[in-house]
């Protein structure tokens, strides 16, 4: 089997986000790669996870990206998603147009909120999600425009604003976490073929960089087979992270 692509490394890094989570909802709402990761985690080391079809169905088994639900084990319409946020049995993977060193994130708008230069989605569920749920982030293009000194609107809370738990940030270049005394963002690992300097150059604030930065774990043969043959045979993952 050919070596893992960057998208496949990212999918496994997203799967690793859920390690140890047990019987909770993996709410991978921010893209294809985290959805792939959640389903991969459930098929391998985290079999009790609950995953969806990308819609209101909790699927009996993890289904391929874009496939219909097949057998269903539960129902989760939007309103129940919002109640489940408060209930807490949920780990969400959010996206961000901007994120700062404490993990404050913005999906609302760029520029002054009163009259934005660029209107985006709106805060959606980010304020509540980050306040009471374990939260991770998926950033498909690691750049200084996303990793900013300051976010224009705080949609999701950082560790300095009362976030419940920020688990990690997975990007196309690296995995980052907040495992520092002052909850600042730290470089945990770089993906194969990516240098520490490259990550630092693409981050608009000062990252905590340990003396030794390991490489992100690569998929094993079983994981590669599941990704390529079962969960994403048409290669949707490559749309988010081109090889």
């Amino acid at each position: 089997m050919s070596a893992a692509t960057r998208a496949e490394v990212c999918a496994v890094a997203c799967a690793e986000l859920f390690r140890g989570d047990g019987e909770i909802l993996a709410a991978a709402v921010s893209g294809l790669v985290p959805a792939l990761g959640a389903r991969l985690a459930r098929m391998t080391f985290e079999p009790d996870l609950l995953t969806t079809d990308g819609g209101p169905h909790l699927t009996a088994e993890p289904v391929p990206l874009g496939a219909p639900a097949g057998a269903v084990e539960g129902w989760l319409p939007f309103r129940d998603h919002l109640w489940l946020v408060l209930n807490g049995r949920r780990h969400v993977v959010l996206g961000a147009s901007q994120i700062d060193r404490y993990g404050n994130s913005n999906i609302s708008c760029i520029g002054a909120w009163e009259r934005p230069a660029r209107q985006l989605l709106g805060v959606r569920g980010a304020p509540g999600n980050t306040r009471v749920n374990t939260t991770s982030y998926w950033i498909p293009r690691h750049s200084p425009r996303v990793f900013t000194e300051k976010v224009d609107v705080v949609s999701g809370l950082g560790g300095d604003r009362g976030a419940f738990e920020l688990r990690a940030v997975v990007t196309d270049l690296a995995v980052l976490d907040f495992d520092t005394p002052d909850r600042r963002m730290r470089l945990r690992s770089t993906h194969p073929g990516v240098t520490v300097e490259e990550v630092v150059a693409n981050t608009g604030f000062e990252l905590v960089v340990p003396d030794e930065v390991p490489q992100t774990r690569t998929p094993d043969a079983a994981e590669l087979r599941l990704i390529r043959e079962v969960l994403d045979p048409t290669g949707l993952r490559d749309r988010e992270v081109p090889s």
Binding site: W113, G125, P127, G128, T130, R131, V132, V154, G162
Partner: peptide, 13 residues
């Protein structure tokens, strides 16, 4: 009452 919104800019705006 809800904890959602606390700490975010929803309260600022």
């Amino acid at each position: 009452p809800t904890p959602a919104g606390l700490g975010s800019d929803v309260l600022r705006v």
